[in-house]
Design a protein around this nucleic acid. Structure first.
Length: 427
RNA sequence: GUGGGCGUAGUGUAGCGGUUAACACGUCAGGUUGUGGCCCUGAAGAUCGAGGGUUCGAUCCCCUCCGCUCACCCCA
C-alpha cells in the first residue's frame, strides 16, 4: 500500500512553522515598499522557450534541471526555474517601458528545479526577488544591493558578507573569455577533470571550482575587471564608490570584490553579487543577483537594461531560526468555550459566532468530553479564558469566566456577546 | 548524474540471533458528586522501510531495491 510523502526535495510548512514564514514574507514586502518596489505575480509556468532563451541553453538549469511538460494542447511549458525571465516577459508583454523608468518590482513565490536535494537545496523552493528594469545607472545597482542587505538585516540575520564582481558586457567579455581560456589551456594538466570538460563550454565556471588545487589556479587567473571596456570600467568604479557611501548606514556592510564570483545564468552583465554567511560552506548563498542588460532584448523587447536579485526564503528562514532572529508569540485564543450538555452546546456555538464577529479569537472545546477534559484542552490551547457553560449557567443566565493565565478569580458573566467581550477585553 | 551515512509507534530514542519489541514526549480516557497547569493510573498506536538469502529461528547477519540524509556538480 502506498504511503504517501511529500515528493523528494519538497516540504510541508506546518502551522507551527508558519510564523517564521509570515515574518520573512512580511519583511520582504515591507522592505520592498520602502524602496518603492511594487509587487508583481507571474504564472508558475511559462513557455519553455522563454527560459531556454532567457536563462541560456548552455546553463545547467536549462540542460538538466527544468520541470518541462507538454500540455493537452501540445505546448511545451516549464515550471519556472527562476524569477527574472517571467518578470521581464511581463515587462515586455504589458509595455511597461511606457511607464516611468526604471520599473521597480518584487515577487515572492515557488521556484522549481530538478536537483538532488541537500541541506538548503530543494526541488521546490521559495524566492523573494526584486527587479529594477529600464535604468542602466550604477545608482540602481547599489539600490538593489542595498535593498537586499536591508532585507536581510530586517530579519535580524547578522554575520553576512557581500561579494561583488563585474563580468563585463558583450563588448569586452569575449576578449576576457579568450584570455581565460588561454590561461587555463596552459594549466590544463593542473585542474580537475570537471574543469577540463567545461573549459570550452563555460570557462567562467572554472573560476569558482571548490577544489583546493583549482582554487589556487583560479586565484592567479586573469581577472574580468582587468578586461573591462571603458563603459564597464566606469560603471564598476561607480558601483564601488556608491557602495562605500552605504557604510554610514550599514557599518557592518563588508563587501569583497571577488574576481572569481560568477553566476550560473547566461544573462548577467557587468555587476554580479552574492550575500552569504561569513563562514560559508556548501549551499549557503542567501541572496544573489546581478545586472542583465541584454535579457529584455533577448526575449523580444527593445534593448533595455535591468538588474535584480533572488533570495532563498527557505535558507533565510533557516538562518532566522538558527540566529533566533524571531520568536513567534505563543499566543492562544482569547476564549475557549467549555460546555456540558446539548443546550450548552448550542449556546456555545452561538456565542462563539458572536464573539468572533466581535473580533475575539474563540474556540469551542470538543463536544462530548468531560469538564475536566475540556479544561485540559483549554489549557493546552494556551487560552486566556475558559468560558464555562453548563445547566447551571443556562438557568442563571451567567456563564463562568475563568482566567487561565494568571491567578485571577473566576467570575460570573451574563451570557451575552457584549458582556463576555467586555469582560475579556477589560482585564 | 557521482559518492558517504542512516532507515524501530505521531515525534525523539533503547534493544537483543530465540516466548506478548522497551522508554520518554505527544494523543485519548480516568483519578466519585461540573473546573486546567503538577502528579498518578490506563488505553490506543510499530506487519522493527520492502523483497530475498543464511539459520531450527532474525528487528538484529548478508544481498538487492526503495526511501531519507549529507556532500560533489550547480544554485537561492
Amino acid at each position: 500500500m502506498p504511503s504517501f510523502r511529500a515528493p523528494r526535495g519538497t516540504y510541508d510548512i506546518l502551522p507551527e512553522e508558519q510564523p517564521y514564514w509570515v515574518f520573512a514574507l512580511h519583511k520582504a514586502a515591507e522592505t520592498s515598499a520602502r524602496f518603492g518596489y511594487g509587487r508583481i505575480d507571474t504564472p508558475m509556468f511559462e513557455a519553455t522557450d522563454l527560459f531556454e532563451r532567457g536563462v541560456g541553453d548552455a546553463t545547467d538549469i536549462v540542460q538538466k534541471e527544468m520541470y518541462t511538460f507538454e500540455d493537452h494542447g501540445g505546448d511545451s511549458l516549464t515550471l519556472r526555474p527562476e524569477g527574472t525571465a517571467n518578470v521581464c516577459r511581463a515587462y515586455v508583454e504589458h509595455g511597461l517601458h511606457n511607464q516611468p523608468q526604471p520599473v521597480r518590482m518584487y515577487y515572492t513565490g515557488a521556484i522549481f528545479r530538478y536537483e538532488r536535494p541537500q541541506a538548503g537545496r530543494f526541488r521546490q523552493h521559495t524566492q523573494f526577488g526584486v527587479e529594477a528594469i529600464g535604468d542602466s545607472s550604477p545608482q540602481v545597482d547599489v539600490e538593489v544591493i542595498e535593498l537586499g542587505w536591508s532585507f536581510i538585516r530586517s530579519l535580524n540575520i547578522t554575520g553576512t558578507q557581500l561579494r561583488i564582481n563585474s563580468i563585463g558586457d558583450p563588448e569586452c567579455r569575449p576578449a576576457y573569455l579568450d584570455a581565460l581560456r588561454d590561461y587555463y589551456r596552459n594549466h590544463i594538466d593542473e585542474v580537475c577533470d570537471d574543469d577540463r570538460q567545461r573549459l570550452e563550454r563555460a570557462p567562467l565556471r572554472l573560476l569558482d571550482c571548490k577544489k583546493t588545487r583549482c582554487q589556487a589556479i583560479g586565484n592567479a587567473a586573469p581577472r574580468s575587471t582587468d578586461f573591462l571596456c571603458d563603459a564597464c570600467e566606469e560603471h564598476w568604479m561607480s558601483v564601488i564608490t556608491l557602495l562605500d557611501g552605504l557604510k554610514d548606514t550599514y557599518p557592518d556592510l563588508e563587501y569583497y570584490a571577488d574576481h572569481r564570483l560568477v553566476r550560473g545564468l547566461d544573462y548577467y552583465t557587468r555587476t554580479v553579487f552574492e550575500i552569504e554567511p561569513e563562514n560559508a560552506a556548501g549551499q549557503s548563498t542567501l541572496l544573489g543577483g546581478g545586472r542583465y542588460d541584454g535579457l529584455i532584448e533577448l526575449i523580444g523587447g527593445q534593448p533595455t537594461s535591468g538588474i535584480g536579485f533572488g533570495s532563498g526564503l527557505d535558507r533565510l528562514v533557516a538562518q532566522v531560526k538558527e540566529q533566533h532572529g524571531y520568536e513567534p508569540p505563543g499566543s492562544g485564543p482569547d476564549v475557549v468555550i467549555v460546555h456540558l450538555g446539548e443546550d450548552a452546546g448550542r449556546r456555545a456555538s452561538a456565542l462563539a459566532a458572536g464573539l468572533r464577529d466581535d473580533g475575539l479569537t474563540v474556540i469551542v472545546a470538543p463536544a462530548g468530553r468531560s469538564m475536566r477534559a475540556q479544561m485540559r484542552y483549554s489549557n493546552s490551547m494556551n487560552a486566556q479564558y475558559a468560558l464555562i457553560i453548563g445547566d447551571r449557567e443556562i438557568e442563571s443566565g451567567e456563564g463562568s469566566l475563568r482566567p487561565l493565565q494568571g491567578d485571577g478569580e473566576q467570575l460570573g458573566v451574563p451570557l451575552s456577546v457584549e458582556a463576555i467581550a467586555d469582560a475579556v477585553r477589560g482585564s
